[in-house]
Simulated assay, not measured.
Amino acid sequence: MNRAFKFSLVMVLALMMILAGCGNKKENAGGNGAASNTGAGNTQTSDEAKKGADIKVGLVTDIGGVNDKSFNQSSWEALEALSKEQGIQHKYLQSNSSADYIPNLNQFVQGGYNLTWAIGFDLGDALKQVADANPNANLAIIDSVVDAPNVESITFAENEGAFLVGVVAGMTTKTNKVGFIGGAESPVIKRFEVGFQAGVKAVNPNAEVIPTYAGAYDKPDVGKSLASQLYNDGADIIFPAAGQTGNGVFNEAKARNNAGGTKVWVIGVDKDQSLEFGDDVTLTSMIKRVDVAVKNVTQQVIDGTFKGGTVTNLTLKDDGVGLPETSKKNVSQEILDKVEEYKQKIISGEITVPAE
Rank of each mutant, 00 (worst) to 15 (best):
L115G: 02
G112L: 04
A118I: 00
I119K: 03
W117P: 05
L123P: 00
D147T: 15
A137C: 03
N136E: 14
Q110L: 13
A131M: 04
A131E: 04
N138A: 08
A140H: 06
A137Y: 02
V109K: 01
L127M: 09
T116W: 02
V146W: 00
A118D: 01
L139V: 02
G124Y: 12
L127P: 02
W117I: 09
L115Y: 02
W117C: 07
A118S: 05
S144C: 14
V130W: 00
V146T: 02
P135R: 02
G111Q: 08
W117F: 07
N136V: 12
I141Y: 04
L123M: 06
A137P: 03
V109D: 03
A131S: 07
D122N: 15
N136F: 13
F108M: 09
D143E: 10
G111S: 08
L139N: 02
D132I: 06
G112W: 03
Y113L: 02
V130F: 00
D147S: 13
Q110Y: 10
A137E: 00
A133N: 04
N134W: 00
N134V: 00
D143S: 12
A126I: 06
K128H: 10
S144N: 15
L115S: 01
A126V: 07
V145Q: 14
N138K: 11
D122F: 14
A131F: 00
A118G: 01
L115A: 01
F108H: 06
I142R: 05
L115W: 04
N136D: 14
D132Y: 08
G112K: 05
F121K: 05
Q129P: 09
Q129N: 11
N134M: 04
V146M: 02
V146Y: 00
G124H: 11
V146N: 01
W117K: 01
D132V: 09
A131Q: 05
N138L: 08
G112T: 07
D143R: 11
D132P: 11
A126G: 09
A137I: 01
K128S: 11
Q107L: 14
D125P: 15
Q110M: 13
F108C: 09
N136Y: 12
Q110S: 14
I141N: 05
Y113E: 03
D147H: 13
Q107N: 14
F121M: 04
W117E: 12
I142F: 11
V109E: 07
W117Y: 06
F108E: 06
N114R: 09
V130I: 03
D147V: 15
D147P: 12
Q107C: 15
F121R: 04
F121Q: 04
D132C: 08
L123Q: 06
Q110F: 09
G111L: 09
L127D: 04
A126H: 10
I141V: 11
T116E: 04
G124C: 11
G111D: 09
N138V: 04
A126W: 09
N134C: 05
I141P: 08
D147G: 12
L115V: 00
N114P: 09
D122I: 15
I141T: 08
G124S: 14
N138D: 11
V109R: 02
Q110T: 12
I119M: 07
Q129C: 03
S144Y: 13
L127T: 03
N138C: 09
G124Q: 13
I141C: 08
Y113W: 06
D143N: 11
D143T: 13
